[in-house]
């Protein structure tokens, strides 16, 4: 064991506290995995985690007596049992003592606070409060007499209403802006018939791109992929996921399928002429029952 730094020291001691059948194996395994940690902080975290792992392993093996393959001597696996764990029982004792000590500390703290409160609180005393001296206040003055003032406003003069403007009318006719005679001839509106493209002939099937891991986990779903296609049915940019299927694996499979289908897309058309366009399409991954 190389005692170069704190993580090595922690791992060495953690492994020594592990069940004897696993001690050498865990130390070598953890030392090798420690070497893969890049930073000093991550190495220290790893070593501290190993200390905790030792306690968990010792507890589980002590609780179940389950067999664990020990390969301290190499590839020749042997079944070893770990019986009992004095560390766990001592840990329970320590935990119990800590809990009792915490309760005692809280109780003492409360009692100390009560005494302190009693010291701080002034003793109870009776004090007779006498009302302050109030001088004789003169009676309030009577309100001033109410006087009505007259305001002479000039008469409001309204303009006369013409006969045809009397009554409420709403002109429902559309407003037509008059145009000169030479500008009244307009071209009729042109409606462009747009047909969205999609996967065309020779497009690969979703089964070919069903991720094997997703099949094993029986994952199914529908992913919506957006593609940009030129007039030849080829991708002009990388496809993207518009709506996820709920599984990262299925989404990746749909992206691969969309890429593999480049050249087999049916381009969108306007008035029958193929145009560059972007459109979504759905990829359904469904297991065959």
């Amino acid at each position: 064991m190389s005692k170069r730094d704190l993580p090595h020291w922690l791992i060495h001691h953690a492994a020594r506290r592990a069940p004897a059948s696993l001690s050498d194996r865990l130390e070598e395994e953890w030392m090798s995995d420690l070497a893969a940690r890049p930073t000093a902080v991550s190495r220290l975290r790893f070593a501290l985690g190993c200390c905790w792992a030792t306690r968990v392993i010792a507890y589980e093996l002590g609780a179940s007596g389950a067999p664990v393959a020990s390969a301290a001597g190499g590839d020749n696996l042997a079944i070893a049992y770990f019986h009992g764990d004095s560390g766990f029982s001592s840990r329970r004792s320590v935990t119990f003592i800590l809990v009792v000590a915490l309760h005692v500390a809280v109780f003492i703290g409360l009692m100390t606070n009560i005494k302190f409160y009693r010291h701080v609180t002034p003793p109870f005393e009776t004090q007779v409060l006498t009302p302050p001296y109030v001088r004789d206040v003169p009676p309030p003055l009577p309100p001033p007499p109410f006087t009505r003032t007259r305001i002479d406003a000039p008469p409001l003069e309204l303009p006369p209403i013409a006969d045809e403007e009397k009554g409420s009318q709403i002109d429902a006719r559309p407003m037509v802006q008059s145009t000169p005679a030479d500008q009244r001839t307009e071209a009729p509106p042109h409606l462009v018939s747009h047909v969205q493209g999609g996967p065309g002939a020779g497009f690969p099937t979703a089964d070919d791109y069903y991720p094997s891991a997703a099949k094993r986990m029986e994952e199914e779903g529908v992913a919506t992929i957006k593609v940009c296609v030129d007039t030849k049915g080829r991708l002009t940019s990388d496809p993207s996921t518009v709506q996820t299927s709920g599984s990262t694996r299925l989404d990746q499979g749909a992206i691969l399928l969309a890429k593999a289908g480049s050249g087999h897309y049916r381009p969108s058309t306007e008035d029958g002429h193929p145009v560059d366009s972007c459109y979504p399409f759905r990829v359904r991954f469904e297991l065959r029952k």
Binding site: L26, W30, D33, L48, G49, I57
Partner: peptide
């Protein structure tokens, strides 16, 4: 996969990872 590989893929702390590996191995 080694424990370090599993940590890289799952980002599970060593204190949790190695008991799981041993548990699955013992099972």
């Amino acid at each position: 996969l080694s424990g370090a590989d599993v940590h890289q893929r799952c980002n599970i702390a060593s204190g949790t990872l190695y008991p799981i590996l041993l548990r699955l191995e013992s099972a």
